[in-house]
Amino acid sequence: MSIFPFIVVAWVLAVGLYGIITSRHLVHQIVCLIVVQSSTYILLLGVGYKTGAVAPYFYDIPTNTPAVDPVVQALALTDVVVEAAVTALLLAFAVQAHKRFGTLDPEELRQLQG
């Protein structure tokens, strides 16, 4: 099945979005956002994959060996680190929200805002 990985992408994206929509806890919501972002890694790596190709590292193999697309791998790599930092920032917001309002339920937070 040549489109199976792309179906997985859509599934992971949908599961994460559903989690964000139905979540009753900010930390849970942030975890769901990580799930959503994970779908982009599968998409990136899936787009660049070539059947029978090796990883784009030519340390001990000839440079004409078929290798997968290095560009999408580079994108996924920086994405992972940036995601971790952004997650920390969102968790910091959750900490402050809990301090100010005493709750992490998005519904109650909205009611507090009026």
Partner: peptide, 29 residues
């Protein structure tokens, strides 16, 4: 899936090692 159309990644794989002397092409990118 598995039928990467190129050409960007293929070109970089072909020239990166001679052009940058880095064997890790992901780092070169």
């Amino acid at each position: 899936f598995g039928h990467y159309p190129g050409p960007y990644g293929d070109i970089i794989n072909a020239i990166a090692v001679t052009q940058t002397h880095a064997t890790g092409v992901v780092s070169a990118v």
